[in-house]
């Protein structure tokens, strides 16, 4: 298992460097579009690390959900709101930056202590998993049922919120609702249920 292990090690190194670099880029770039694209890079490198951990389904899901949906939507939002605005340099900006740095450092120490204190059960033998899908599904529908359902309720809530936002009518009813026929598209009017 010489070659395979070497490949694994090198891949892990490349992926971690990529991920850390991209993550730093997300935070440090002034251009928000670059940050958003680099976020995609972070997600993809994470998917690569999942593959190294034999979690192929999770990595594909990571790409599909985070890169394909979340990141694209973030980019969408950024590009649709393409407002060129010159931000004035704030007074006492260092207070905000200092606070942010403090909070981040605190979080970092917290997480690193957690990861150092936890007695990880690292198995040295590689377990060739036939398919990670079945055990995943089993966990979802037995001991992780509650978080799973909670997550779906969360998604439902955000969906309802989005629909309510999208359906809001900005048009005032009183002012000239009747457009002349010549300006309307020749389309059959569709009636909605309950209207």
């Amino acid at each position: 298992m010489q070659i395979a292990e070497g490949v694994q090690l090198v891949t892990f190194g490349i992926l971690s460097v990529l991920m850390l670099g991209a993550a730093l880029g997300v935070v440090l770039f002034a251009n928000i579009v670059y940050s958003a694209f680099l976020l995609g890079g972070v997600f993809i490198s994470m998917a690569g690390i999942y593959i190294l951990l034999n979690a192929d389904f999770v990595s594909a899901a990571q790409i599909l959900v985070y890169v394909g949906a979340v990141n694209v939507l973030i980019l969408f939002a950024i590009m649709l709101v393409n407002k060129r605005e010159d931000f004035k340099p704030l007074k006492n900006n260092w207070i905000r930056q200092g606070t942010t740095a403090l909070v981040c450092a605190g979080l970092f120490t917290l997480l690193s202590t957690v990861s150092l204190v936890t007695p990880w059960a690292i198995s040295t033998t590689t377990i060739p998993l036939a398919s990670s899908i079945v055990p995943l599904a089993k966990h979802f529908f037995t001991d992780f049922l509650l978080p799973f359902e909670l997550a779906s309720i969360l998604l439902l809530m955000s969906m309802v919120g989005a629909i309510i936002l999208a359906r809001r009518d900005f048009l005032p009813d009183s002012v000239g609702t009747s457009t002349p026929d010549s300006l309307t598209l020749p389309e059959r009017p569709r009636e909605l249920v309950g209207k």
Binding site: D56, F57, A61, L64, V67
Partner: peptide, 12 residues
Amino acid sequence: FLWIAFSSVVPI
């Protein structure tokens, strides 16, 4: 599933 995941990268 892998195919669906990869094709979702294209829009980026």
